[in-house]
Design a protein around this nucleic acid. Structure first.
Lengths: 196, 196
DNA sequence: AGGATTCCCAAACGACCGTTTGTTTGTGAC
DNA sequence: GTCACAAACAAACGGTCGTTTGGGAATCCT
């Protein structure tokens, strides 16, 4: 039973992984169950032994992406150090996550809107939580006098997320900057604009 | 005559406009000819009196988006003034364009990859041209001593484009910042990080 | 008035969509 | 050794896909 269960979940993980790749390449609506079946060497109907629907797959991929960002964000938030340190940690973590899991991150960032209302609002809640992490770091920096008192918290958070969320669109392996370097430079530049 | 004149037809413009809205809302693959027909009050087959294929529509929408960014970029590039002035003008123009034509910009930025190879490379050329505009402004700033001599031109351009290209994902009318203000604040923040 | 040209409808094309069904196959548990 | 059960197949479901065709009004040019 344990073995059978593990095998079942292993197959499902394969399917979610293939879905991440295909959804990121061809889009959710551009990917058919046939494409997914081909990727696993199965008939498209056989996939329904592992999932309830195509929507389920989309949700799994999107949630996987969301959770990774949240985890790294929480780590950064709990660091000791200045607000600038935590901001840097968050941005580095963000870029590292986006690049190490490029497929799931891409789906998370631009296929999530094809989720049906209920699952979409579950993901929206996670997005909101992540954004509030960024905001609270900036607020801390202002409270401690590290950042300009007149800095617009919402706008600063938006700029930080804009920088991080566009990475998937241009990053390709083998570039001249490592993900860690990219995150650090983003942090450097943005921090400079915020400093008191 | 047939092609050039038809392209100017009011009905076709309506169709391209509806396509911009629907493609941006539902994605290219998530939008059917039926959806487009409904939007114009026509049978889906009747649309083929005005276009050659669904791909043609996607190309028109994407190119329209690309050309608007290029136009504003060229205006900014030709301004007299410091590099920071031109950078500011470009960013303000970028944000204004993205928000005034949110639908076409959204399609330009995340449906263009569904173009077939030939039209896609035509759009890629325009994207490259735009990116090189941004780069040359930064290079100018370095050459005149306005920006730090050790600034990484490619990275700076990427950050600028990241900020501008993510606007479509969060901007909604009626926010507390106007597009012009958003562009100005982006420019302010990024310039500060680049200054000598 | 006559002829050509637009614009659109109605219907059909073959292909493919996501999903369900009934059945066979292989494997682990007792 | 046989039994239970999950995994996969083969086939079919009703529906939709993008596109083509043939014809019928309306409109424009002359």
């Amino acid at each position: 039973m344990a073995l059978a269960e593990r095998a079942r979940t292993a197959r499902r993980a394969e399917l979610v992984s293939a879905a991440a790749r295909l959804f990121s390449e061809r889009g959710y609506h551009g990917t058919s169950m046939q494409h997914l079946g081909d990727a696993l060497g199965l008939q498209r109907g056989s996939l329904y032994a592992h999932i309830g629907s195509k929507q389920d797959l989309l949700f799994d991929v999107v949630e996987e992406g969301a959770d990774r960002f949240l985890d790294r964000g929480a780590q950064a938030e709990s660091l000791d150090g200045t607000a600038a340190d935590r901001l840097r940690a968050l941005l580095v973590g963000h870029v590292e996550t986006a690049t190490q899991h490029l497929d799931a991150s891409t789906v998370f960032l631009n296929e999530w809107r094809y989720l049906e209302p209920e699952p979409r609002s579950a993901i929206q809640a996670k997005r909101d939580r992540y954004e509030s992490m960024v905001r609270s770091i900036v607020e801390d920096g202002i409270a401690t006098g590290e950042f300009r008192p007149d800095a617009d918290v919402r706008f600063a958070a938006t700029l930080i997320l804009s920088a991080g969320n566009w990475v998937y669109a241009w990053y390709r392996e083998g570039g001249e900057l490592t993900p860690t370097e990219i995150g650090n430079r983003f942090a450097e530049l943005i921090t400079k604009g915020l400093e008191a």
